[in-house]
Write a protein that binds this DNA or RNA. Sequence first.
DNA 1: CGATATATATCGGCAACTGGTAGGTTAGGC
DNA 2: GCCTAACCTACCAGTTGCCGATATATATCG
Lengths: 137, 137
Amino acid sequence: MTGPMREPTFLILTALAPEPRYGYEIIREVAGLSGGRLKLRPGTLYGALDRLADAGLLERDREEVADGRLRRYYRLTEAGSVALTAEAERLDRNAAAARLGLDRRAARSAAGSTGRSGAGSAVGSAAASPRLAGGTA
Amino acid sequence: MTGPMREPTFLILTALAPEPRYGYEIIREVAGLSGGRLKLRPGTLYGALDRLADAGLLERDREEVADGRLRRYYRLTEAGSVALTAEAERLDRNAAAARLGLDRRAARSAAGSTGRSGAGSAVGSAAASPRLAGGTA
DNA sequence: CGATATATATCGGCAACTGGTAGGTTAGGC
DNA sequence: GCCTAACCTACCAGTTGCCGATATATATCG
């Protein structure tokens, strides 16, 4: 679990970044962070919590009983914080690369040569591509 | 294919954003964009190309024979461009959310209350979470 | 009581990817 | 000439995280 993580995993870690939270609260927090777009299923949440705990990115914090219901709190570990930071940087770099490519595309559209590029570019298409410094996702 | 895409898919679209490219060139471009981190396998590439074409995000551009080798060019469609733009924005929002959470975490660490938060925060943990305007990933 | 919300937990199936294999051509080195 | 690496497209079994669901329990409200 050092490679790219998918969005649910990422947002779970994000939800736990500021403070420990219990399962159901993570679900709500992730929904909020995603503007209602991502509704974590219990299967996804607890599967991810187990995986991330096994990988040392998070751990059990404490248990509490509130209104007759057990709440199991989790917290991000230092390794989890590091992984989340690295992942955020990866996202930034990927987004920047896409932006650059889209900008160049728009510039080409404005120049009138769109889509079917001329036959002359077949060999020349190995032109310098945006090479991002630290690597992207 | 309107939901979150994984990194290989995203970077394939990014490689095709500025101009049409053929399969092997996409592999090289993606490797460059990712700083050598992501080496697309043929299985991944052609599987994704088929999927993305089926979804209308890219299409066949042309074929060429160079040095006795067939090169099959692909180009991003307008829908693909739109999807890539949306995806880049999603990445930005996600990264920003993670940063915010990590900053709050660092602030808590500096305040001396780390990890095991006090018992008093059990009910108050529903405090206002960073609510990003347009929604995140 | 029934419906809804709040809470944790488990599981089968699926899609995208991983990690390969395959077939072919060309160029360079020995 | 032979071998290796690079250049090209194509196909496939296995893995993994997630989807979509089910289950159990408590609490509240009409």
